[in-house]
Every structure is written in C-alpha cells, then in structure tokens.
Simulated scan of single mutants.
Amino acid sequence: MKKFLLQSFYFIILTASLLELGSRLMMDKTYFYAIDPYKGPSALTDVSIADIYKSSPSSVDYLFIGSSRVAAGINSDQWNSIHREDNITINAGRGFFSGGSHYLALSNLLDNYPDYLKGAKVYLELPGGVIYAENFDDHLYDYYPSMSHLVLPHVSFSNFRELVARQNTLSDKANITLLYFSSFYRTFPFFKEYKGRFIDRLVKSRIQTQPKSDLANAGGIKVNSSELSQAKERALRMTEDRIKYQDEQEILTLDQLNNSIVAHLATLIRENGGEMILFEMPLHSSFQKVNQTSWARENSKVFKSWVDQEGIRIIDTSEFDISDDDFPDYWHMSITKRAEFTSFMAQRDTSDHAPSPNY
C-alpha cells in the first residue's frame, strides 16, 4: 500500500510537471499575446504565428484606451490611412479591463520603453461624463473577479506582492498566485473566454455560409450571434443595477478626482511626453439612462470642472449620427458605424503631430 501511494504521488508530480512544461512551451506566447490589449488584438481570429512573436513597439503615435467600446469604435488601420500609413496606432480598448490595469500596463511599458509616450496622443473614452474616478491608492489593483488573469502581463514581481496583499480571502490569494506562477492553471480561464472563438473559427472553416457578425472581433467582444440576446439581457440588468446603486452614493468632489485613477493616468501620460485627450463615447439608450439621472449629471459637472482645471481636452461627439440600431448587442457599435466613427474622430484630430522617435 505504501509503495502504491508513493508511486501514485510520483505519477501525479510527473504528470503535473509535464502539463506545466507543455503549457509554458506551447501556450504562454499565445496566451500573453491574446490577453494583452497593448500588444495584440485580444482576439485569436486571423492571427498568425508571426503576430504572436512580435515585440511591443518602443513608442506609439496614437493610443486609444478604455473598455471594449473603444475596441469596437476605432479601427487603427483606418486611422493610420487617414493620417500617416507609418504611424504606430494601438487600440488598447479591452472588455473587463479596469482603469488600474491600464495604469499598470502603461507604467510597465514605460519601464521598458522610456520614450513609449513621447509625442503621443492618448485618447481615453468618456462614457457618460465620468471615467476612472476611483481612488488610486484603494483601487489600483482592482480587477473583474471572473477575468483576474487579464492583469498578469502588466504586473512585475514587486507589483505582484502588493496584488496578493490586496486580496480579501485566502482563496483569492491562492487563485491570483496560481495564475501568476502556473502556466497550466491560467490556461483554464483563457480557454473559457476563447472557446467560443475557437468553435466559431472551426465551424466557419467547414461551413462558409455562417452569418457574418456586424461586430468588431477585438477587445474581447463576443461576436457569436447566439450570444447577442444574452448580451442585451445583461445590458438591461446592468443599467437597472447601476441606477439603483446611485441612490447610495455621494456626489464626486474635486479632491476625490485629484486622487483618482484618471488623475494619475493623466499625470503619467503628461510626465512622459504624451497628451491625454478625452472623447465622448456614443452609447445605446439603455446605457444613456444611467447618465441622465440627477446624480449622474451632477457628477458630470464636477468631472468637467476637474478636466478644465487640468487643461485636458474633451472631444464632443454629440454631432455624430448614431441610433440604437447601430448597437447590435447594446454594448458596442457595429462595424459599419465603427468606420464612420473612426473618420469622425480623425477629422477632429486637427493639431500637428510629430513622428515617433523610432522613425
């Protein structure tokens, strides 16, 4: 019996080691490419092996950051065709990606490439009048519980220790630790998120009559037609919850915004040679309701005062022609509107822009 248990133990250790080694050799490059919006398209459709092995650019001309709405709303290639074909434009819009994660990602890039933002224009979405108003010290390491793995590419070991310390429960600490150190363990959330894309790609390779989605396949956006109704239901539930949540909240203050994530983002960008520009993000009417309450309007006024205080530009998109029909899943604008919105935004990028130092 003792010999059997010992053999079983060795077998488990050997199997686990082989799985871990296999994951590191076969999955890590693809994994860290697919989940890093600053490096890849956050999607695995039409991505080549060469794309996965590309290094991050040492500097950018234009950088778009925010949620998956940004991924849906801006076409980087089209943006470059309007400006300069040799521009480096990164669309880092990503669903389930917190403001703190964007800050960590930029800080990490600047550690490796000090000129990353030199002369760059950084466009940050403004959905409904306020963005990333959470306290920097308290919420820098926040992430969406079901998508905790998204923070991994942007956390150094010193950051990691702080990240673990911020976890509330032992299970949360264990989960984030395993994600950070075990390649095999972190493949599970990866496959969970991308299994629909793998299946779609396999099906479309066999059946060419599949209906084409009118959503951009980027930023973690789910383009499977069967998931649209679920996305719409989630949107309606979320808007109801957010309106109820407002009843318990105080109005923002300038002091709070001075210590917010958006304030630290603005400082990080400015001190490294870039300019942060806010742009109003078109929204489906269900989301607009959240921003039309008296509480939301008062917060928008305070946020606008802070923006004026900081000398940050806001691009007004109220003239952009869009309707609810242009949001197939209620969350994201369609590919057709994406092209129109990219052109609309590019027309408002009127100031001169110096080429990147790497030209």
Rank of each mutant, 00 (worst) to 15 (best):
E20Q: 13
I82C: 10
D86C: 10
P153E: 08
H83I: 08
T336A: 01
S158D: 15
D46W: 09
D200W: 01
I314K: 09
Q167F: 08
I261Q: 02
E85N: 15
V307W: 06
I12S: 08
Y132P: 03
S318C: 08
L124P: 00
V151L: 06
L170N: 11
S205W: 14
A235T: 08
K222E: 05
E271K: 04
M26I: 04
Y10Q: 11
Q78P: 03
T350F: 10
S158T: 08
D142A: 06
A339Y: 11
V262G: 00
F320E: 14
S55R: 11
M276P: 00
Q309Y: 07
L278V: 01
A71C: 03
E340C: 08
T336E: 10
A43G: 13
Y10L: 14
R161F: 04
P328S: 07
G95H: 10
Q249Y: 00
P127I: 07
I207G: 01
A235W: 04
Y132R: 00
P328T: 01
G99L: 00
L254E: 15
S107F: 06
I322S: 02
T350W: 02
P145Y: 12
S55T: 06
S229K: 10
T239W: 03
A71G: 14
S42V: 09
D77L: 15
D111E: 13
V302Q: 05
S23W: 05
K289T: 12
H353D: 05
